[in-house]
Design a protein around this nucleic acid. Structure first.
Lengths: 209, 209
DNA sequence: TACGTTTTCAAACGAGAGTTTGAAAACGGA
DNA sequence: TCCGTTTTCAAACTCTCGTTTGAAAACGTA
């Protein structure tokens, strides 16, 4: 419980979070982490009982951070009209495109997991993602008051999918053939576009069944 | 140019395609491929000059297959009303959810690439994805006749994002907290839902700017 | 200060990856 | 059939990975 050991532990966590966010679990080596944290290689096993234990810790931190972030955000937008609440939600989902802060890193770590979920993540997800999904479901519920639960779930995922593809593929989209460069103002513009389409999409159209 | 060597080559390609689709490039080992193809380990280096060369070949095949598939599909739906054309497009994008055919495998291989694109893929993409994007852009163009090129690109990606999140995360969505099981009829239902929301979303709403 | 505990460190270990090797086998035209 | 070429094969090589080891250093308390 002494101080200096906490410092080492913290340096490892910080370095690991950055590298995991950048490259994902598999592509991040123990050696890369200790080089960045400037600690001895054995320190990871000493403090976290291996790479997986370290990752679990990083994942937990990211999860806590994101949940708090989302809950805080939900509180802020609770009083807004549904259209504005949705627009704010979309803008927040697109945040990793324009910011390189802690929250963006956490979202990036989760993005990696959507491809090949580690067992650690699967467990965390099934235990704690309910509140996450709940917030998004509530948001779309305001547009689909009479929909059943399954439709609401699909709508929530639909909403997340629209945002995540831009976040996940930013680098590729910047190149040919799309050449979509996304600076700060472009992200604002994109968020508005997506919000409008989503609001209209979920709006009770008079169209086909 | 003799026959028997072509057989070995083909067995490797078939086994590799299946494994790459299933696990992605990194998680697929040379040894797993040769075990499945029942050929000698050195055969891959002999015929393809290494794992990367083999992957390049698989990727090319997948790309050709998908492009042909999409072009054929575009021809079929060219005469349809825009709403039906879009519905058919969405249904086709969701195909890997219900089918385990060659095309679905090809789409899966590409899904892996959207996370950490291999250099091989980046090159292929920038050279040949134009026609791909073009088809999708044309589709949304029928709903947004006056939009500029950048908006059309975003709309096309938006459309792809809505579909891909369900394809990519099928397994996770099946578990808690979402518990969205997608059998054949559920996929049809999902495709209809997504189509409706998209059509309404892109439809000229009278709402906010 | 002295001593038991905690923490750091350099080095080595074993498993798994992709690749290389050189000989044996199969092939095919003369 | 014979012989140069193509193709297969088992084994070994090299590299990187995560982990382990055992001693040295730092620490905190009596």
């Amino acid at each position: 419980m002494t101080r200096p050991s906490e410092i080492t532990r913290d340096r490892i966590l910080k370095a690991a979070e950055r590298l995991f966010a950048e490259r994902g679990y598999d592509a991040t080596s123990i050696r890369a982490i200790v080089a960045r944290a400037r600690v001895n290689q054995a320190a990871i096993n000493y403090h976290f009982e291996g790479k997986e234990g370290l990752y679990r810790e990083v994942l937990r931190t990211a999860f806590r951070g994101l949940t708090e972030d989302q809950i805080a955000h939900a509180d802020e937008t609770a009083g807004l009209p549904r259209e504005e609440a949705l627009a704010a939600f979309v803008r927040r989902q697109l945040r990793p495109l324009s910011a390189r802060d802690e929250t963006s890193r956490h979202m990036r770590i989760f993005n990696w997991e959507t491809v090949r979920p580690t067992p650690v993540f699967r467990k965390l997800l099934s235990e704690e993602a309910a509140s996450f999904m709940g917030l998004t479901t509530n948001l779309v519920h305001r547009f689909l008051p009479e929909a059943d639960q399954r439709t609401l779930s699909v709508a929530a995922i639909w909403l997340l999918g629209q945002c995540s593809i831009f976040v996940r593929n930013r680098e590729q989209l910047a190149g040919p053939p799309v050449s979509l460069e996304l600076d700060e103002t472009a992200v604002d513009w994109l968020a508005q576009l997506l919000s409008r389409w989503t609001v209209q999409g979920l709006g009770t159209g008079f169209g086909r069944a």
